[in-house]
Design a protein around this nucleic acid. Structure first.
Lengths: 261, 261
DNA sequence: GTAGGCGTTCCGTCAAACGGAACACATGTA
DNA sequence: TACATGTGTTCCGTTTGACGGAACGCCTAC
């Protein structure tokens, strides 16, 4: 299908997507217009439709805020489609076993980024992981590399081409280093890294695949460096890998599929 | 704003909304077209755009299924906007206190329906409540009436005008009976009913309001009739009401607002 | 062979999406 | 006070692509 210049539905979806990933209401017409390189008139029109359907609401100062309909639609979809309730008890079991915080990562082939969609916090007095539900690069840290390593080569090349963001001073930012790490993941079945995404945190992660065999995301454990010793890597890694395989099985049973890039 | 015949964005949103509340993929072009009284051509075009953005995906047999982007957008929004994490621990506390299943109901003024968006199951071996995340009438059972009673009179009249569905043989289906129940809720601050929505289940519920003072939903407890005695109504009712007030306070603190009808 | 289901394509019509310009109002600044 | 810049909004002429009916090609069922 040839996409032309004018595509109201597509544009409206872009706005919706932007709202979803920039959740700091109130939103302003011209702010969105600038961000998406559209005319304020266009955004105003789209906002008007959204408001009419209850997706957006006004905050009294003329600003636009999320309407209840936006929430309810998204809640329905997320509740029906989310793998989280499907796999949560496996994450909890892993947390109990290792006594450390467990995360579930999900990869978006379109954005070529990942985010954590669920956490099971350990009882330790750890810092709350504020990166939940935020898009992050997929090349940084064990939590990213466990996914990155199972992308196709063209996908990885595309990410290299886009440039590798230096998240911390330990982040691997050259193709050479990353490809070496990728190879190691394939050998071990899990990854372990120190401070590549969060300074002071050790990450151990293993990939999760959907029912079509594409990498869906990963199961991760993060451990503060003070509590971590090298000797733990192997046993924890094995446990993470085991859980990731169980989760993969769970997704397969449920017929879970990742979108095609 | 005058809405005309042709409104691509609005129609696309209608489709999206329909997909969200009819989550039994794969979806077919003509099925949606019939349900929304649009031409298959139109749905096909909209599906094309959705597919292009990754909101929809194909299942190999030509059918359309949810794409990862649909899930990710909705997950982001739901995670940012959901009152559930905000209030869950209060529901858990109520569950612990009463030792029965606690539900959080949310009302949609546009659909004039409600749904349960969260449950805390009691440890009792109860039947799983399959009505989670499904739209239900707001006039049936304590779980509905606690909300219904705090709608404006025009809103209630509109619901009467639409006709009152007989969910069970005990459901109140006349304006007279319902208005009497409404009055009682206003006096007591909570409602108690038997089998008006689910045969064999007693429901006790109290309203929750958003920061603008509109009714957002309710806090509910359901108890199997075998375990229920009339003497419990008052103490459980008070506990439910107390929790609902705490939850209201929580929404107010967070600036939670319901859309205007 | 016929009937009905499906997703899809073609096409002429015309409603409405589009962006630039201007408006009304609220700021902060000189 | 006058000006500059911000906001949401309205107006308008141009033109594009949304629209639905009809038809196509493919399936399964009878």
């Amino acid at each position: 299908m040839v996409v032309g210049e004018r595509e109201p539905v597509g544009r409206a979806l872009d706005v919706l997507t932007w709202l979803a990933s920039n959740p700091r209401p109130p939103w302003s017409v011209r702010q969105v217009a600038r961000a998406l390189e559209m005319s304020p008139t266009t955004i105003h029109r789209i906002f008007g439709v959204f408001e009419g359907r209850g997706l957006l609401d006004r905050d009294g100062d003329g600003g636009y805020v999320a309407g209840i309909e936006l929430y309810l639609i998204c809640h329905s979809v997320a509740a029906q489609l989310s793998p989280v309730p499907l796999v949560r008890h496996h994450l909890e079991a892993l947390c109990e076993k290792c006594d450390e915080t467990v995360l579930l990562g999900a990869y978006d082939p379109k954005r070529t980024r990942m985010m954590f969609i669920d956490v099971v916090e350990s009882p330790h007095p750890v810092q709350y992981l504020s990166t939940l539900n935020e898009w992050m690069p997929v090349h940084s840290g064990a939590t990213g590399i466990a996914i990155f390593a199972f992308l196709t080569e063209p996908e990885r090349k595309a990410i290299y081409a886009k440039g590798l963001e230096q998240v911390t001073d330990r982040t691997l930012v050259t193709e050479r280093e990353l490809e070496k790490a990728v190879q190691r993941v394939h050998e071990l079945g899990y990854v372990c890294s120190r401070g590549q995404r969060t300074p002071g945190a050790v990450g151990i992660a293993a990939p999760v695949f959907d029912s079509a065999g594409n990498v869906f995301g990963d199961v991760c454990i993060t451990i503060p460096e003070q509590r971590f010793e090298d000797s733990m890597a192997e046993t924890v890694g094995a446990a993470v890998r085991e859980t990731s395989e169980v989760v993969t099985g769970e997704l397969r049973r449920a017929g879970y599929r990742r979108g095609v890039a």
